[in-house]
Each structure stands twice: as C-alpha cells, then as structure tokens.
Design a protein around this nucleic acid. Structure first.
Lengths: 223, 223
DNA sequence: TAGATTGTTAATCGATTAACAATC
DNA sequence: TAGATTGTTAATCGATTAACAATC
C-alpha cells in the first residue's frame, strides 16, 4: 500500500477523537526529547511510561500517523515529529478571526503557541469602540460591524468566540451567515448552528466538574 | 432503596466521564428554560432535540443524579436543577489558589461563573513582584514564595496553574509538596505528579486538533 | 382510552487492552 | 543467539443505542 492510498483510507475511516487528543501530547513530549539530544530513537515503552499511557496505545496512535519503527530500536524521534506534523496539517496554517477582546480574548490573541499548531489568528473584533482601532499583542482589533465583510473578503473559515453569554448566539449567527465553517466557542453557553457548521465548545464547567468529582472520590477513599 | 444507599452505590461505581461533562450542559440549558417560565416540566425528548443529544442518553444521564420524572409529563425543571446541583456538589464551594497572573490567569481570576460551579478562587500568586501586592478583579495577588505556607495554613486543596511552560513543573512540585490535592493545569505542558494527585489538563492544542480535523474532513466531503 | 414518556434490561458499537508472531 | 520492540489480529471493556414493559 502506498502513501496516498493510506491517506485516503485514513480519511474515510474516522480517526478516534481520543487519539487526536493524544497526538499533541506525544508531540510536546517528543519535542522535549529532541531538545535534550540524548537519543535519536524512542520506544512506545518509554513514551508510555513517561506520559502514563499504555505502550500498546501509544503504538496504535502513532500507527495512525503512518509512523513506523524498528523492533528493539523504536522510532526515530525526528520522523515521529514530522509524521505528527504532517498528519495534523501543522505545516500549512489556517487563518482565523477572534471575536470578543475581553480578558480571555486578549490572552488568546497573544498566545504564541497557536502558530505552531497551524492556527494563525489574524485579527480581533469587538463591539466596544474603545477597544477597536488599536492593536492588542500585535493583532489589530476591528469593530464587529466589519466582521461579515471581512470574513467574506478574506475567506476566513475559523472563528474564535470569546464573548459574554448573552451575545454568543448572535455573534455565532453573524459568523455563520458570513460563511464561516467552524467556531471555536469559549463562551459559557452552548450555541446552536446549522448541522454543517463545526463547533468546538471549550467548556470550563465540564472540565471543572470532572476535576472536582475525581477530587471528591479521592478524598473519600483515602479516609 | 433509600437516598443515602443510592449515593453510596453511585460513589462506588465510577460515573462515566462523558456523563459528567454533559451534566453542566443540561444545567445551563435548564436554567434558560427556567428563566423563560413557560413550562414547569420538560422531557428528555425536548432536551435532546435542543442540545443534539439522543433522548435516551439524556435520560440515562439524568438518572445518575437520582432525578425522576413522570411518564408523559417529563421532569420538573426545578427538581432537575437542584438534583444536578446536589449531585455535582455545587452547593458548598471549594477554595482554590491560582498561580500565574498573566493574561489567562487574570481572565480566570475575574471569571464570575466559577462560583456557580462550586469553585472559589480566593487569591492569585505570581513570581513577578510588579504584579503582587495589588488586587486583580478584586482578588489579592501574593508573591509565589508565600504560596506553600498559605496552602498549608488555609488547607487549600485545588491549585490552578496558569504559568508559562518553562516553570509549570516547578510550580506543580511546589504545590504538591505543600499538600495540594488537585491541579487544574492550563499551561501547555503535561506535568508529572505523584499518582494520588489529580491533574486536569486543559489542553488547547488537543481541542484545536479535533476542530481542525473535523473541518478538514467536512471541506473534503462537500467537495 | 390512547399515546407520549419514563425506567430498565438487552444489543451494539467503538476504543482500549491483550496476545503473539515477525524482526532487528 | 536472546530478547526487546514492532505490527497485527483477537478479546475485553465500557459507553451508546435500541427495545420494551410500565405508567401517567
């Protein structure tokens, strides 16, 4: 089976979401290993014991990126890194707009890490005129009334939503109508969009619930 | 089976994490319904169709909180809300410290929503002296060297980590040594802690990967 | 009563884990 | 060679979904 065949097969059978979520974790760890320059190769056993993931799971995940290793030796760190980059499309970046330049929005505007993961936030938008016309962390902030036009003109596909609950749905509608394909939603409400639009809801309440339930259980068991 | 028996059984068999993550979503939706004051009751069918979740799954999830409804009528909105609150322990709040008062840390310090979810961030800490000794969003910021003492003195169990990658592990160690039980980690690196410590890693790279893969697939299928 | 909905038990599905031959 | 590790196929486990009787 050649490479492009493999890619087609991979695109057809959906990749498990847990695997997708683990790949960046391997990547970050492998970057560290590479920086240390101690070993050219690494095994699933090593990766797994360091990250608290079963070796077999690491192997399964890496296999999805077309990585291949040598028995006894392991995988070449350099190759793993570039396999993950290729697989996740981190080589070519996608442009995005961010809507709502409050505390969280400003923090995300300034976060340098996204570029590494193929995301380039090219501008911010806000309805508060006091915040527009200036740069925040080197990113220009425009009034929200310019958003639809600019989405169309630039062909922007990803919108990042960091606005208060009460206006989240309205701004989602605005972006969808302007032709956005995906919304990364940091507002604390679930937004309704047409089926073909992709929404990734970053729900801090959900995460907090998982954390505090685990904490409650652990405090009960260790009496 | 009486109520306390039920609680013991629930505590023993682990609650599925997906269920835990959905409960706050139901809660937020039910709050809206309650505010509208149109209906006293609601069915799983309604909740499901609104949130794009299968009714049977909604019913299974709600059953875990001991909720009970009436055939044909549905559940009382008021009761569902208080069941979820009770189940998730949102009635009594837990205190937490936040470490790293940068952009993201400040945003979280000022986020009012946590209180509703039983989390009370009582103070921030930073190693930059220019940021300490002042209040941010009404929360006092202390120098990080006071952190261990204050964790011990106040018996703080939850630490929120919003620091740059390079010092995340050090500060995690500091908190663990001081006796913290759980760390909510917003830094972009995986931190290593003893087995008994709970870590919830908020990984934006993972979420972004899921979003962009879905986007890539959708753009490929609708040619 | 008729029928929508609950609550419960069973079937399905997909991700994780185990087993094992191939190989460096 | 011996043994650690890969790659692949099979078994397990847990969450989702389906089926259906009970009931308001």
């Amino acid at each position: 089976m050649n490479g492009s065949n493999h890619k087609i097969k991979m695109a057809l059978k959906a990749i498990p979401e847990p695997t997708l979520r683990r790949l960046p974790i391997y990547y970050q760890y492998l970057k560290q290993i590479q920086a240390e320059k101690k070993h050219e190769h690494i095994s699933c056993t090593q990766i797994g014991s360091e990250l608290n993931i079963l070796p077999i799971q690491v192997r399964k995940d890496l296999a999805i990126t077309e990585a291949s290793g040598k028995p006894k030796l392991g995988y070449r760190v350099k190759h793993l890194l570039s396999n993950i980059e290729d697989f996740l499309g981190w080589n070519n970046t996608t442009d995005a707009y961010l809507v709502g330049v409050g505390h969280l929005g400003s923090a995300l505007l300034g976060y340098q890490g996204f570029k590494e993961y193929g995301l380039n936030i090219i501008a911010g938008f806000d309805s508060d005129e006091a915040k527009t016309g200036i740069e925040i962390h080197g990113k220009m902030v425009f009034p929200v009334k310019k958003l639809p036009d600019m989405i169309k003109r630039m062909g922007i596909k990803i919108g990042i939503l960091t606005v208060p609950s009460y206006c989240a749905q309205d701004l989602a509608n605005l972006m969808v109508d302007a032709g956005i394909h995906a919304i990364w939603n940091f507002s604390p409400v679930k937004i309704m969009v047409p089926d073909e639009i992709i929404v990734q809801h970053e729900n801090l309440a959900s995460s907090l619930v998982v954390l505090s339930k685990k904490l409650a259980v652990s405090m009960r068991t260790d009496k």
